[in-house]
Write a protein that binds this DNA or RNA. Structure first.
Lengths: 338, 338
DNA sequence: TATAAAATTGACAGCGCTGTCATTGCCGTA
DNA sequence: TACGGCAATGACAGCGCTGTCAATTTTATA
């Protein structure tokens, strides 16, 4: 830990600069020298001093993730993915929880950027739709990647998932199980995902030539309570659906609770599925069939893009939208129609 | 952004060193000079370059938080508290999610410490009980603060909450509501908090001269499902309790769902309370009466301690344990016995 | 074998700041 | 008036690394 690049250079019998090249995986070093340096470094237990590196190269080896209290599980997973990518590149992740509502967010960001000179920023929703923040970043000329933004971002790369397709697949799954009478509980109208998911549901139903019964469609606000209420309305109809697709897991859990309260068994009498694969989905009983969002992957991708490794994706010379794969998680809250 | 300390020095007509002193709030600068420098800095929109500062002072202005997937909400709140403290001191927070199970955690930490030379580390549970990690930190002589560790840590300062007292208070609250027949669902036996909470429950019951009915005590594993099952057993007794205290919110939610399934109304027929004030507590219906852990405060405290500001607490010359205040959150899942 | 071209390597000057220590100017005291 | 003492300030040398560019060696080409 105390050894410097000079020590390594001396030990390997080369110049500091050569050691530097090896440590940074630069080309133009012969295999033999490279090995010599590497083993010298290993023997001395040498770790480059980031501060010095930064000062000399005016890169910071730091990227920041800004977020504004979305759901904890979401943030944690983005962090997890992003730090994984960071490690591969010798970078580190600085987190900056902001509270758009309180305080002077912009000032906080200013100092963050001013002090740290981060090399890039990951913007978690809903911050990625904050015009002020985005334009500050743009003005400062700091690369940033919005995760699942609801609007386009000029020519900035973005990372997201395909809500429409996921909802379509979930609906098709229910249909495949034999369900034809399917209810749907929409999500918060202000979240762009809500509309997309409903659209996916409609597309699948139309494609299967199934009618959407308006009595079985309810609005919700992504909360457990809304699920309870929506289910109360839907299940009090004389004709009930055999399956209900909720726009997120919290509402699906509410639906299950409500159905149980009405004496219905899940999944025997009613299949219920959610969306998100939140921690709740796996802890509720019966456990929820749901869509796993590729949150971790999105974090990983965002960091990778920032760190310059073009993702091994399609290949339009200029790919801007990186849409990652979700997964349908089948658990005990759904089953084929008896 | 481009201006350096030299620019400021020139503009203020003083030496770099004096500017440095002002920027660091060092003494030995006359008021007049200080003002002159400050305004020069302001006019030039000068921000000190952290990397240079670090290199010259061999401090990093960074603290790290290590965690190993405890619940997301918990982590996020610690982060929130810690970053708040960091901002006050011009520090920043680097996060490092570890997976004790996979990979070589120790190596990850090594490189983290080696590269960044962080000035301190916050250890979230359950990592704070990982002997290897702790001794690595100690060996490297890096200050660290464990949050809610289950064991003592020699002469290291720790930050925690008082589980026993909290559980006692919750029980007393139920008793005050007129409940005398109270059930309890214990938590995961491997979490030290479980035993402490049960202890608090017992103390309160004994103090009130109430008998603990063993038929109403169940073991759980902190999951929703366990709550469902425990409630199933407790509520199938011929004599039922009028209130159940669950060791965490997930189980409490399970209890409510189970009770509803059995045709009991909450809170009319059964009061239920949890512990943690997790997001779930506020989204379930009826919303849970629970104990709010001072997680944010713990994060804040931990960072403050690391950054050297002795907390304005009791005052034993050498305080080691900082026990922060919880709060009993009263919601709709409990009510006085009819 | 000679020579251009390419691949390796190293010398050196900072990056922007702070620690150390020397210098200056001013005060009170004898 | 002279001198010790202290507050305020500055000069200077790095912190440990990388960028630039020049020097050297190797390889390819004619």
């Amino acid at each position: 830990m105390k050894s410097t690049i000079t020590d390594v250079a001396r030990r390997a019998g080369v110049s500091m600069k050569t050691v530097s090249r090896v440590m940074n995986n630069e080309p133009s070093v012969s295999k033999a020298t490279r090995e010599k340096v590497k083993s010298a470094a290993r023997e001395l237990d040498y770790t480059p001093n980031l501060a010095a590196r930064r000062l000399a190269s005016s890169k910071s080896y730091l990227i920041a993730m800004l977020y504004d209290i979305p759901s904890p599980g979401y943030v944690i997973n983005i962090q997890k993915g992003a730090t994984t990518a960071c490690r591969e590149f010798g970078y580190h992740l600085v987190v900056e929880p902001l509270e758009t509502m309180e305080s002077n967010v912009m000032a906080d960001i200013e100092t963050l950027l001013g002090h740290l000179r981060v090399d890039g920023v990951i913007l978690a929703p809903p911050l990625c739709d904050n015009g002020e923040v985005v334009s500050l970043l743009a003005r400062r000329n700091i690369p940033y990647i919005p995760i699942a933004p609801s609007t386009q971002h000029g020519d900035v790369q973005i990372v997201k998932m395909d809500d429409v397709r996921a909802a379509r697949e979930m609906t098709e799954y229910l249909i495949r199980l034999g369900h034809t009478d399917i209810g749907f509980v929409k999500g918060h109208p202000r979240h762009s995902a809500s509309a997309l998911r409903f659209q996916g549901f409609r597309e699948a139903m139309r494609k299967a030539n199934l009618r959407i019964n308006p009595d079985w469609i309810e609005e919700g606000l992504f909360t457990y309570k809304c699920g309870v209420e929506a289910a109360g309305k839907i299940l009090s109809q004389s004709k009930k659906p055999s399956a209900i697709f909720a726009c997120n897991d919290d509402m699906a859990a509410g639906i299950i609770a409500s159905a149980m309260g009405l004496g219905l068994k899940v999944p025997e009498d009613l299949s219920v599925c959610g969306f998100d694969d939140s921690p709740l989905a796996d802890s509720v009983w019966p456990r929820l069939t749901t869509i796993r969002q590729p949150v971790r992957e999105m974090g990983y991708m965002a960091a990778s893009l920032l760190l310059g490794r073009q993702a091994p994706q399609k290949n339009k010379a200029e790919q801007l939208v990186f849409s990652l794969d979700h997964a349908l998680i089948e658990r005990e809250s759904t089953r084929s129609k008896s």
